[in-house]
Design a protein around this nucleic acid. Structure first.
Lengths: 366, 366
DNA sequence: ATGAAAGCGCTAACAA
DNA sequence: TTGTTAGCGCTTTCAT
């Protein structure tokens, strides 16, 4: 017979049945709120449950029902303000459901993909939300093949039936760029996100479309790829500002890179917004704590998490019902980091010294 | 007979046994790497597993073993840079173990306490890490009573046997305050954290001890309670700066409040560090992105998460072995937000206008 | 070295 | 309305 190592709380359905003087099937009925239980019996059973502090064994339930009552969240990494907000939204929705949340990260290790897929298909979760994990395509392929329910955040997937929640990246980028154009800027640099992600590509397209709409020539020189880190924002800005004909405005594909631009501008003795206008993307809380406050495109991250969770839960409840991806609006918030282009440049750019100053100051950062 | 709703992947141990021509007990032995299996048999079973893509049903395992192979993380909320880093550390350790991570938040809702305790005792997790959830004392009481393993982060608990990981808050605060004193500051304001948390109290004590060591009178006027939000930093600073004899330096109990101080100082036209020195606590990534870079006390959050996970895992493996709480060092990083006190005040403080300016600018923040 | 079999705690079909 | 019973897929004794 199996070795006992049961959970601390050990009253089982049988103990309750004995105490209440009924069969344990009846207890099960009471626990699951079934119809056919005499009111008096129900009361008696409830009392017995109360007395014993009965708590249904979750794993037995899971085994017999074939469901885990958990959903998984697969993310690349946990740092940064972006993930936390989406998680908060997901958690919000789950709090009102019977589902719990499991967290999986992909990290550096590519070989974990297979393990996760196995875990899920072995009954660890009933469905999955994927937020831009590396190796997304591999995951999705396995998931589809197993008919395992999933929802993507910030990516539209690869098949028309893929479920996703994404912001209106194109529109947001278009609005941001147009805002700069309307302020009179003509040389607008862009620091992109990781370019093989849907969101990054869409923002680039929006930027280009706005330029085109205003008959501004797209100059490839003004276009640098970043990776959503602050450092890549610093480096991107330094590169842009050292051009022979530097931009008077920069659109960074996320706020964290915009913080990097702020730092680079400061190192180059450029004032934002007087000498350089700057727009970010995301509107993380910190965007309104910087000096100057950052003009940025808000991506409603908490809401996106919420929608993703709802979409997944609905899929679990009713797999047949036809659902589709959701695009949420991305809204430009004009704060203090943008100003009219001042014709000539407001200050001479000395990027060489700026970069040196930055490197020196940066050495304080351990 | 029970309705079928098994996981997508449906090869069971019996299928494997049939294919390999052995009993399913033998398959179990192979799966669990037991000794007594003939090499040839093992090979045959392995091949059958491979062929069928067999994956042990986790919930059956959980039921029979009485363990969930999951640990829970209970936090108050998910936003902000603090939690993400600790989670990353925990995840790091779990990645090399057989455990998965479940996430629970307490949010606003106090009534969820009971639910969580139930979930845990019903076998959802094998152990718990608690990061300053509201209602901590209630949780701990239930947990102890059920002999459920747990580790606290950033709190020392209530019993000598409580396991915890915490930074050397007292020392960190002492060093921060001493740094300011050595720069010649004598009126040093402090914005505290939520004062019923251990970490906040310890930082206050360190601040007071440093003042005392330097024979500086502790002035209750210079002491305001914050709640770790940026807004409370703004308000605390505004209050301090409007004193008849305002501080020349402020020690904020976390970086986020220090960002608020930065904002308030800017609104009051005070330069940091020339007119006001500022020290934070935590050293979140953003602390080195502000202008000026923030002098702060680093709390090794990722490492703390890692240690907490290791402590819990060791407890699960060997419940008897005597373990104890861990205090990690908190180190002062001097960057750009502190400077020598300049005798007289460098600028006149106009807090009334400053506050007005701040309120107006703040209205941009939706 | 291997097989047979007894549960783990529960759900749900079937009978009464 | 209630009880009886057959599993869910697995681990682990106990025989062989």
């Amino acid at each position: 017979m199996a070795r006992r190592a049961k959970p601390a709380n050990n009253a089982t359905i049988i103990d309750v049945a004995n105490l209440a003087g009924v069969s344990y099937a009846t207890v099960s009925r009471v626990v699951n709120n079934k119809e056919n239980v005499a009111p008096a019996t129900r009361v008696r059973v409830l009392a017995a449950m109360e007395e014993l502090g009965y708590q249904a064994n979750l794993n037995a339930r899971r085994l017999v029902s074939g469901r885990s009552y958990a959903i998984g969240l697969l993310v690349h990494n946990l740092m940064g303000p972006y993930i936390g907000e989406i998680m908060a939204g997901i958690d919000d929705v789950l709090a009102t459901s019977n589902y719990e949340l499991m967290l999986f990260t992909t990290h550096q290790r590519r070989e974990r993909e297979a393990r996760y897929i196995d875990l899920m298909s072995s009954g660890m979760t009933d469905g999955l939300i994927l937020i831009l994990p590396r190796g997304l395509e591999t995951y999705i392929r396995s998931l589809r093949q197993r008919h395992f329910p999933y929802v993507l955040v910030d990516h539209r997937g690869f098949e028309p039936t893929d479920l996703y929640v994404i912001a209106a990246n194109w529109q947001g980028a278009y609005d941001a760029t147009q805002h700069l154009l309307q302020l009179g800027h003509r040389r607008i640099g862009m620091i992109t996100g990781v370019i093989d992600m849907d969101n990054a590509r869409e923002r680039v397209a929006g930027y280009q479309a706005a330029l085109e709409a205003h008959q501004v020539h797209f100059d490839a020189e003004l276009f640098v790829e970043g990776d959503y880190t602050q450092l890549s924002g610093v480096n991107g800005a330094l590169k842009l500002l050292s051009l022979a004909d530097p931009p008077t405005a920069i659109f960074a594909s996320n706020d964290v890179m915009a913080f990097g631009v702020l730092e680079a501008a400061h190192a180059c003795k450029l004032r934002v917004p007087q000498d350089l206008s700057l727009v970010g993307f995301d509107d993380v809380p910190m965007a309104s704590w910087t000096q100057p406050r950052l003009t940025t495109v808000r991506q409603p991250l908490v809401e996106m998490g919420r929608l993703a969770a709802e979409l997944l839960l609905r899929t679990l409840e009713d797999p047949e019902h036809q659902k589709q991806g959701i695009v949420v609006p991305a809204e430009l918030f004009v704060r203090q980091s943008t100003a009219p282009a001042n014709g000539g440049r407001g200050a001479t750019v000395d990027v060489v010294n700026g970069a040196a100053a930055w490197a020196e100051a940066g050495s304080n950062v351990v």
